[in-house]
Nucleic acid binder design. Sequence first.
DNA 1: TTTCATGTAATTATACATGTTACGTGATGG
DNA 2: CCATCACGTAACATGTATAATTACATGAAA
Lengths: 158, 158
Amino acid sequence: MYNYMKRNSRLSVALHVLLHMAEQADKALTSDVLASWAATNPVVIRRTFAGLRDAGIVGSTKGHGGGWTLLKPLDAVSLADIQAALDEPLLALGKAEESPGCLVELAVNAALDDAVAEARRLLDERLSKITLADLAAQIGPRRVVLQAAGCKDPHHEP
Amino acid sequence: MYNYMKRNSRLSVALHVLLHMAEQADKALTSDVLASWAATNPVVIRRTFAGLRDAGIVGSTKGHGGGWTLLKPLDAVSLADIQAALDEPLLALGKAEESPGCLVELAVNAALDDAVAEARRLLDERLSKITLADLAAQIGPRRVVLQAAGCKDPHHEP
DNA sequence: TTTCATGTAATTATACATGTTACGTGATGG
DNA sequence: CCATCACGTAACATGTATAATTACATGAAA
């Protein structure tokens, strides 16, 4: 009966962690390590990354030395890919189905759905043009600059 | 620390009620009546419509025979106007401010904010081109057709 | 002055996402 | 093999945002 816009910290968390992973490429990293980067819980990481694994963006291995690894080069993964891999989100504006027979409600929903769908298309198109490599490129240089200026690396480990 | 996408039943409720008001133009309608149309509580109507009143879209009078009235012609009120009049809304994607010093987080937020801001601009532009009159025009003819076909008016009153 | 209706503050209820705990499964290494 | 490690999930707890409700104040009309 109601329409909710879903929350979204998933995308933010996923991007954050993926970029940090890129800095330690090829090492299998445990959920605990990733969780500490995102200041969250290992289980949350496993839940969030399940979608990314299904999409082939990351892989996971069990047992000793196991963990998560990036499977694709940074420039082959767009923000839209990640967004799509995380089950459901951004710009949802579910339809209210109260008064199911009401013509007014139908017209209102149709108009709103159209407008939101178009906005969502635009957003998706935008996100599909930004890759993890783009974000990494923004970060790399600045970190060097900051470190040269005497700032310590603003990472998360103790 | 979290970013939420706000719910949005306000806009849907407001549109629904405004269009029904248009059908009974010039009569002051009480919050109770409006609430019954939207299947919600009178207080919710008063809260929601407070913004519309401040924006000059509707007016309210107290006491006997009081209630709410539409102050503008239907073609002078766009969905964007209504959206803006309801305090806060559509397509928010608040920023996560966890790890405030983290460059990764900063880059992620910047990219996301840009994309969402553009989507929001598009949506607002779209909504500004749809007026209440447009929606009413979609409804009127169909109602006649349905009634001619023997369907009873799908309204909300008992 | 009684009644009606809005205006708000304060409280409660609901929905949903994240956080947490617990336990199952498979892989590795001694 | 068997103990350990790490993911995979289900079940439950917590947090937060919003709507729904209650209660009472304010002002207008009969």
